[in-house]
């Protein structure tokens, strides 16, 4: 212990303690200041383009706001209208369906693929990562064009293969939403797979080996050793996939425009449709505020559950 004290400075430096403390405080202050200065540019843009518009959005949601500007204070009218609006109800249920189906399947499939490829040879692993990541970098317009061609009622490859020429997959209420979910799934798995491959590579191998030596089965090793270590990654994937699913817009805009008969209408698309087609900006802001609240609640729940785990 004495050696340790000596090594750490012993009793001699104690005389100089006030000066050292002051120096370290000054250093800490400088580092803090530097950190804030580095943060400043992004903070400026974050406040200007995210925080301020958020407050503006909340303000406008309480107004009667159209193309000609704010016509007056609407109180809670926009929110009352929202809860009576059958299109919003349909959009809310569809959004929930997309989240409830897409988030677990994307997470589970990504984990499964990552588990299958992370032990492969580096070249093979990179190949698979590229393949699964391609839809992410391809861009939604290109992807939807391809899917539109696949699902075309008269010339589409799906109908040619299935022998169902003329069947309108995106124009039928019972099938349209499932194809939206399927396409969303294909575009959402790339990033989680890459993240899971990285997370699996970071799992402490000594613990895995110890568990295997102790006779743990593969499933036990996975659940007891690997899964807890991957929890931060899983939480991140859950949160981003949930937010992406809630904000599913481009696919719907490009493929179905919320139809047929609102069967693919989502809250996010309704915000756009209400603002830019119907020019009812006050109501669109109210829908946007409710969507933000729903996403916040879901994200908070996910954090809570993950912490409990």
């Amino acid at each position: 212990m004495a050696q340790a004290r000596t090594a750490a400075g012993g009793s001699k430096p104690q005389k100089k303690q006030p000066q050292t403390t002051q120096t370290s405080r000054t250093l800490a202050r400088r580092e803090t200041l530097s950190a804030y200065l580095f943060l400043l540019p992004s903070l400026f843009f974050f406040i200007s383009f995210v925080v301020v518009p958020m407050f503006i959005c909340v303000f406008y949601s309480f107004t009667e706001y159209g193309l000609g500007g704010v016509k007056g204070f609407a109180g809670l009218d926009n929110y009352i209208k929202l809860f009576k609006d059958p299109v919003f109800h349909r959009g809310f249920l569809n959004t929930l369906l997309i989240v409830v189906v897409a988030v677990p399947t994307v997470t589970a499939f990504s984990l499964w693929v990552a588990s299958a490829i992370y032990k492969m040879h580096a070249v093979t692993r990179s190949f698979f990562r590229c393949v699964f990541y391609l839809p992410v970098v391809t861009g939604s317009v290109a992807i939807t064009v391809v899917w539109k061609w696949i699902l075309h009622p008269y010339n589409g490859i799906l109908n040619q293969v299935a022998g169902t020429t003329g069947f309108d997959w995106l124009g039928t209420q019972s099938t349209a939403i499932w194809f939206i979910i399927l396409i969303l799934f294909t575009t959402s798995i790339g990033q989680p797979i890459v993240l899971y491959v990285a997370a699996l590579g970071n799992v402490d191998n000594s613990l895995v080996e110890a568990a295997e030596v102790d006779g743990g089965t593969k499933l036990q090793v996975f659940w007891k050793i690997k899964w807890p270590q991957m929890m931060p990654t899983t939480l991140y994937i859950l949160v981003i996939t949930t937010i992406n699913s809630f904000q599913c817009f481009a696919l719907i805009q490009l493929l179905t425009k919320g139809g047929p008969l609102n069967s693919t209408m989502t809250i996010m698309y309704q915000v756009y449709d209400t603002a830019y087609r119907l020019n009812d900006l006050g109501y669109a802001n109210a829908i946007g505020v409710v969507l933000a609240l729903i996403i916040a609640i879901f994200s908070a729940l996910q954090f809570k559950i993950a912490k409990t785990d």
Binding site: L33, L37, F38, P41, F44, F45
Partner: peptide
């Protein structure tokens, strides 16, 4: 260090 940090911040703002 402070000067460098300031310069960096300035560069970033101007860059943006």
């Amino acid at each position: 260090k402070k000067i460098i940090a300031l310069l960096l911040a300035l560069v970033m703002v101007v860059g943006l």
